[in-house]
């Protein structure tokens, strides 16, 4: 699905990703964990093509294509989806219109016919149930005035509608109560298939109780300090990040 090799990226003069290598195959869920400031969110943003980061070296091959050579919207159209840590508000633009425009852009890129408003409503109605959102929220402005939980569920709704090949969840669990967390995780689990993949960025292990990863990678200071199976997440929960940071310090 995606092959990341020695990826380095910086903001201004500050290098944040210091050589990340990672392979995610179809049907897999990988968790990216790490302390605050380790570069987890940066990795998510760089993969989505955020203009605030400069990729200084390395490569990212996604479905055989050079991802770094693509514009953000081309990546999205090719099936890379980022669920934002802080979903952006767009006042005055209805959720329904926004989502349909995005849906049709993705369809167009795949050479599929666009959906008219009525067809689209059918598609969305089905997906709304998945994330336990009310149809009324389609008429509200994109994320404007949404609670934290609604914003995160709205991200998962978009994920469900756009049906990407690679979904990157950037701290989707932060700020969620346990019920909302379960709803979000259930949604993700239902969307999981053999031909798609998830990269789940999280600070806490608790999301991984519900979305069980195939692999767990721990990011420390812009590098993957350790990789392992799902049990690594439990170990982190029990021991915190300090021991890895310390090992890293000794090794460096």
């Amino acid at each position: 699905m995606i092959h990341i090799s020695d990826l380095r990226a910086s903001v201004g003069d500050k290098e944040i990703l210091k050589g990340i290598s990672l392979d995610v195959g179809a049907g897999e869920i990988h968790a990216i964990m790490g302390p605050n400031g380790s570069g987890k969110s940066t990795l998510a943003q760089v993969l989505a093509g955020h203009p605030g980061y400069e990729v200084t070296s390395g490569s990212v091959i996604y479905q055989g294509k050079d991802l770094l050579d693509m514009e953000p919207e081309e990546r999205a159209q090719a099936g890379v989806f980022l669920a934002f840590q802080y979903p952006v508000e767009i006042p005055g633009v209805s959720n329904a219109y926004f989502l349909r425009t995005a849906y049709n852009e993705v369809r167009k890129a795949r050479g599929e016919p666009e959906a008219d408003p009525l067809e689209f409503l059918d598609i969305v109605a089905d997906r709304l149930k998945l994330v336990d959102l009310d149809e009324a929220m389609l008429q509200r402005s994109v994320n404007a005035g949404f609670s934290g939980g609604e914003k995160k569920r709205n991200e998962i709704l978009q994920l469900a509608v756009l049906d990407p090949a690679l979904a990157i969840l950037d701290e989707t669990d932060s700020g969620l109560d346990i019920d909302a967390l379960r709803t979000v995780a259930d949604g993700v689990n239902k969307l999981r298939r053999q031909d798609n993949a998830f990269l789940v960025v999280t600070h806490y292990q608790r999301l991984l109780n519900y979305i069980v990863p195939d692999r767990v990678h721990v990011l420390v200071d812009g590098r993957i300090a350790r990789s392992g199976g799902k049990e690594l997440a439990l170990e982190l929960e029990a021991r915190g990040y300090d021991w890895i940071t310390a090992e890293q310090g000794v090794g460096a």
Partner: peptide, 12 residues
């Protein structure tokens, strides 16, 4: 910029 990036990330 964040609004534009958000829209682009959805394929616009």
């Amino acid at each position: 910029e964040d609004q534009i990036f958000y829209c682009k990330q959805r394929g616009l």
